[in-house]
């Protein structure tokens, strides 16, 4: 696998605040890498340093085997899609897309052909003569994408590209971006705070917090095995507790098993190797599932909130009365379903 870009011990300070703290990161050729994290985690600062809009305080940035740390953005040959799309309001859609080609002195005829091609790729061939303000948010997004890819960038950088779209369009654009990436054979770096988006779109995801990388890897490796509590929480894990001899563990709500005086194992029926006492605090009915909130007492004696998601049809109807607020149960899980966390 070839390296498309690399951060080498990159830090960025803003006054006393360290936005990025000794970042080492490799972007692989042809892959879609997401930088994922809450706001202030350093993901956007990292992207802006990669694009050349911000200079690192320390460290180097390499693109295609070349040290670009001091190279201005216009000499980096990257395509970027901004959160606000940043379409030039005084130009038509076609002129927006053709802007980068014009600067590269591409002859008029070839320019027109490539602009048309790029607009076709994002499905907006028919809107070439419109002004950006006459387009919907989703269409503006596609124009921004076409403008960035028409220059055949070494890297395509996407800064929270979907956050201004409505929920349905967002999901649709995820697939769209993946399709365009594949068709154009692009290396993409995408910044997002949406873990679902990252899981669905990435070849490789990098979870950041406090300017550092918490964990990185392909979604299918990273999701089942979060390295620490921060990553687990960010990926949507909810249950955290200390178990004797196992340290801090987490377990997905649907893999948690409940036992009470009358309750059979609600999950797989195997006896939980580890079990803790708990009190039901509330119950929510969600279609075929029951979402049971519990207060459990873990190994340290602390009361921790847990969420169990139980299939309704897995519970004997005689046992339902035990699943009421105040009901005392035992909570456990198959040891194979426990994920051990470092902190």
């Amino acid at each position: 696998m070839t390296t498309a870009a690399e951060f080498v011990a990159v830090s960025r300070h803003f006054g006393d605040f360290t936005a990025v703290d000794g970042l080492d990161l490799t972007i692989r050729e042809g892959e879609l890498t997401t930088l994922l994290g809450p706001s202030g985690c350093g993901k956007t600062t990292s992207l802006r340093m990669l694009a050349g809009y911000l200079a690192p305080s320390e460290g180097q940035i390499w693109i295609g085997g070349e040290d670009v740390t001091r190279t201005p953005p216009e000499k980096r040959g990257l395509g970027m899609v901004f959160q606000s799309y940043a379409l030039f309001p005084h130009m038509s859609v076609a002129d927006n897309v053709g802007y980068g080609l014009k600067l590269r002195k591409v002859p008029r005829a070839e320019r027109a052909r490539r602009v048309a091609e790029a607009l076709e790729l994002v499905g907006l061939g028919h809107l070439a003569d419109r002004r950006p303000k006459a387009l919907s948010g989703g269409q503006q997004q596609r124009v921004a994408l076409a403008r960035a890819i028409v220059i055949r960038p070494r890297l395509l950088l996407l800064d929270e590209p979907l956050s201004n779209l409505d929920a349905r369009l967002r999901v649709q654009m995820r697939e769209e971006i993946r399709r365009i990436q594949a068709e154009a054979g692009l290396t993409v770096v995408l910044v997002t705070h949406d873990q679902e988006e990252a899981l669905e779109m990435s070849d490789r995801m990098v979870v950041m917090n406090g300017g550092r990388v918490m964990q990185e890897g392909p979604p299918d490796e990273l999701f089942p095995a979060p390295a620490n509590r921060f990553v687990a929480e960010f990926l949507g894990y909810e249950n955290f507790l200390e178990l004797p001899g196992r340290g801090l563990v987490t377990v997905r709500p649907e893999l948690l098993e409940l036992r009470g005086e009358h309750l059979e194992a609600a999950g797989h029926g195997t006896a939980p190797a580890t079990a803790v006492p708990a009190t039901v605090t509330s119950i929510a009915y969600r279609g075929v599932e029951l979402r049971v909130a519990l207060d459990a007492v873990d190994a340290t004696g602390a009361t921790v909130p847990l969420i169990a998601s139980v299939r309704r049809d897995a519970i004997d109807s005689r046992d339902l009365p035990a699943l009421l607020p105040g009901g005392r149960v035992t909570v456990g899980a198959d040891p194979g379903h426990l994920v051990r966390l470092s902190a």
Partner: peptide, 29 residues
């Protein structure tokens, strides 16, 4: 005006001067 407009122009290959003439000034017209 969106400050990202100038960034966008720079990213597409415009020098600071070029982005001023082709983007900033027309937007401020």
């Amino acid at each position: 005006a969106d400050p990202a407009l100038e960034d966008a122009a720079r990213g597409l290959g415009a020098s600071a001067w070029r982005s001023f003439w082709t983007v900033t000034l027309p937007v401020l017209r």
